[in-house]
Amino acid sequence: MKLADVGDVRLHYRIDGPDDGAPVVFANSLGTDMRLWDPILPLLPPGYKYIRFDKRGHGLSTCPPSPYTMGALITDTERLLDHLGVRDCVFVGLSIGGMIAQGLAVKRLDLVRAMVLSNTGAKIGTPAMWDDRIADVAKGGIEALADAVMERWFSSEFRATPELELWRNMLVRQEDQGYMGCSAAISGTDFYTPTSGLRLPTLGIAGAQDGSTPPDLVRETVDLIPGSQFHLIRKAGHLPCVEQPEDYAEVLTKFLREVGHG
């Protein structure tokens, strides 16, 4: 476990793979930490330098008081990659992580040579919806949202398995301030115009039963970028890397090879 001081926060990060491997960076969703990617990492090809981190307010990273801005989350990520000497990575972002990917590519194209926009959008939800969620967490903690979040995250089949409890526990053990802060960042973000100006290899991944970022939203977002690809994963909700790790790893591996990474 390592911490990087990136200014007003310290980010917990982990690197798997050789130091000289081509970098693949993962940014996880609201309410999860870097363990989100545990199911797929053993299924990905060796030789790459896999970099994961907990965004501010999540996992073992520090948690400033909410609210946060998307600009702050992007700057955190930019400073982490600069700290690690990363250039020309493939950036895999899920949900809010996909928003960070879009913003980082617009700001620092030297850092990102290709990106995977998983279960995300150029804009997610409405400010009123996020205000309601923030108010619920302020009143009753993340626990107040947990059951509804599980319904959006996972298919009905997965929710019937014992593994559901693992992910519910991960959610409710995040910091309330971190959840509220990142919710505010999503609420204030509309990347339709800046993302439409991007020109880099892009893969969109959606879960057929995603209740947070439906497939049409993911497709609409990646369609803003000419030449992008789109892949739908069946029998999965908002976290297809958890529900269908073999399918997720297969499509990600194919994309890494198609873009000539490493």
Rank of each mutant, 00 (worst) to 15 (best):
P42C: 11
G103M: 10
G97D: 07
S66T: 14
S196F: 13
R108C: 05
K254G: 05
G141E: 10
Y248D: 00
I134G: 10
K254Q: 09
L239C: 12
P245I: 04
G57W: 11
M70H: 07
H83Y: 01
F158D: 00
G121H: 10
G140E: 05
L224C: 09
A184K: 15
M70Q: 06
L84M: 09
A208T: 02
Y50E: 01
G178R: 09
P162M: 03
L43N: 02
Q177H: 15
N169I: 14
G260P: 14
G178Y: 13
E143H: 13
G227C: 04
L171D: 07
V112S: 02
I124W: 10
E243L: 07
T202G: 07
G85A: 03
H238G: 02
L43G: 04
K254F: 13
V116I: 11
F26Y: 10
L104D: 03
L256V: 11
F26S: 03
M115Y: 12
L41T: 08
P240D: 03
P245H: 01
T189H: 12
D247M: 08
C241E: 01
V106P: 03
I40C: 04
A72C: 10
A236W: 09
Y179M: 07
I40H: 05
H12C: 15
V106S: 05
V218H: 12
G260V: 11
G207V: 01
A144I: 01
S187P: 15
R234L: 11
V9I: 08
N28F: 11
P65C: 06
R257D: 01
M170V: 14
A206K: 05
A105F: 08
R35Y: 08
V86P: 07
A138P: 05
T62P: 02
R14H: 13
L81I: 10
L104S: 04
V172I: 15
F91P: 04
D247I: 09
G181C: 07
S212H: 12
G47K: 09
G211K: 15
G85F: 08
G125L: 15
A22T: 02
G98D: 11
R52W: 13
R173F: 15
L81A: 11
K55E: 03
T253Q: 04
G121N: 08
D88N: 14
L11T: 06
G140H: 09
L36N: 04
L256F: 14
G97V: 15
V90P: 02
E78V: 00
S156D: 02
D8M: 08
A135N: 12
R159Q: 09
G121Q: 08
L3I: 07
P46R: 02
D110R: 00
P214H: 04
H12D: 10
R199L: 12
A101P: 12
Q102Y: 06
P46G: 01
M170K: 07
L198V: 08
P45R: 06
Y13P: 01
M150W: 06
D5V: 10
C241R: 02
D132C: 15
M180Q: 15
V9D: 01
L36Y: 05
Q177E: 15
Y248F: 15
I40V: 13
H231L: 04
L252A: 00
G207N: 00
G17N: 06
E220V: 07
R113P: 03
T126N: 10
D19M: 13
A160I: 10
P65V: 09
G21K: 03
V218W: 14
G188W: 11
I134A: 11
L30R: 12
K2Q: 06
H238P: 08
V218E: 05
S212C: 13
D76I: 01
G21H: 04
L217H: 12
M99S: 14
